[in-house]
């Protein structure tokens, strides 16, 4: 076992017992922060699959929050609360969306790819805003998915553990993917697309499949977000959230398996500490926590190209 994986495993172990800790110290709010960290980690791992391994900077990843979330929300509003039905539909919708966006955007490169993925995400955003029947701009209160007799998602600890288990599954899958034949092709295409084509790989097809896989995990995160707050709204897929996801991936270390986890922890830990700290200095300043966060990100970009993952690696030698 490599030492840098030890740190990741320690973090996971800590996350595994988080509900027990928050209960013991009577810090229930921390559990909700933990839940958000875990869900966003899933989404960030998903983004890392195409951004990190594929080198494709998608600036529309929050659309999957929205599609996964709204699929659950709309079904719930229509009286279908069975999770066994809701979740597969939400995942299928996310994958379909990924296939559609991928098929068009993968024909472009660089800045154009970024812009097209952003444009498609904005499309879904405004579509959701226009869904007057489902709350429009205000969003929609929903009841949580039901898994009769098996799980009660209203219980915070149960829900947290479900999210945590799904994160572990996502990390496992992504780790296997990265070193599989498929993952090697994906990384090869990032390194030298022309070369990969000359070797006989239809690069477009591999990237498209990567998008669909990432879409499934992004949609999963959306399902979980909807269930966390029992609420969906267009705000969950604003372009700012897509930006946050990129920030988390960059912060954690692009293309590093546990990078998204590190990134999500640092991102939310900073948000949760900087806000009250700034509010303490001057009431109302907390809202502007990103004024401190921004320069920090610049420092990471300048001095630690591989993000948190490379910092940890350096320490281990």
């Amino acid at each position: 076992m490599q030492p840098r994986n030890m740190i990741a495993l320690l973090l996971l172990a800590l996350l595994a017992v988080l509900p027990l800790l928050t209960q013991a110290f009577d810090q229930r709010y921390l559990l909700s922060v933990g839940t958000r960290i875990v869900i966003w980690s899933i989404a960030a791992v998903s983004l890392n699959m195409i951004l990190g391994y594929g080198g494709l900077v998608s600036f529309g990843h929050a659309a999957f929050f929205g599609i996964g979330g709204y699929a659950v929300g709309i079904l719930s509003a229509e009286g279908i609360q069975n999770g066994w039905l809701q979740w597969p539909v939400a995942l299928a919708a996310s994958m379909l969306w990924a296939a559609l966006v991928g098929a068009l955007s993968l024909r472009t490169r660089g800045v154009y790819f970024i812009m097209i993925t952003l444009a498609f995400a904005q499309l879904v955003y405004y579509l959701a805003s226009g869904l007057e029947g489902y709350g429009g701009d205000d969003g929609l209160n929903i009841s949580r998915s039901r898994f009769a007799g098996l799980l009660d998602l209203r219980d915070k600890a149960t829900f947290y553990w479900l999210c945590f288990a799904l994160l572990c599954g996502t990390l496992w899958f992504c780790g296997r993917l990265a070193n599989s034949r498929f993952g090697t092709v994906l990384r090869g295409a990032r390194a030298n697309e022309l070369r990969m084509t000359a070797l006989g790989f239809p690069v477009f097809r591999y990237r498209l499949v990567a998008c669909v896989i990432a879409g499934a995990f992004g949609g999963l995160a959306g399902i979980l977000i909807a269930n966390e707050g029992a609420y969906v709204s267009p705000a969950m897929m604003s372009w700012v959230k897509s930006g946050d996801l990129i920030v988390i991936v960059v912060l954690g270390g692009i293309g590093a398996l546990f990078g998204p986890l590190y990134g999500a922890i640092v991102f939310f830990a900073l948000e949760e500490t900087l806000k009250p700290f700034l509010d303490l200095l001057h009431k109302g300043w907390g809202e502007y926590w990103q004024i401190v966060f921004g320069p920090l990100l610049v420092l990471i970009a300048l001095h630690a190209r591989g993000g948190m993952a490379s910092l940890l690696r350096r320490r281990d030698g």
Binding site: N179, S180, R181, F182, V185, M196, G200
Partner: peptide
């Protein structure tokens, strides 16, 4: 990778190369 390209498709997601 070149050998892999020659062995048919690479839509294999789990086995470690």
């Amino acid at each position: 990778l070149a050998v892999q390209a020659h062995q048919g498709h690479s839509f294999r997601f789990l086995a470690d190369v």
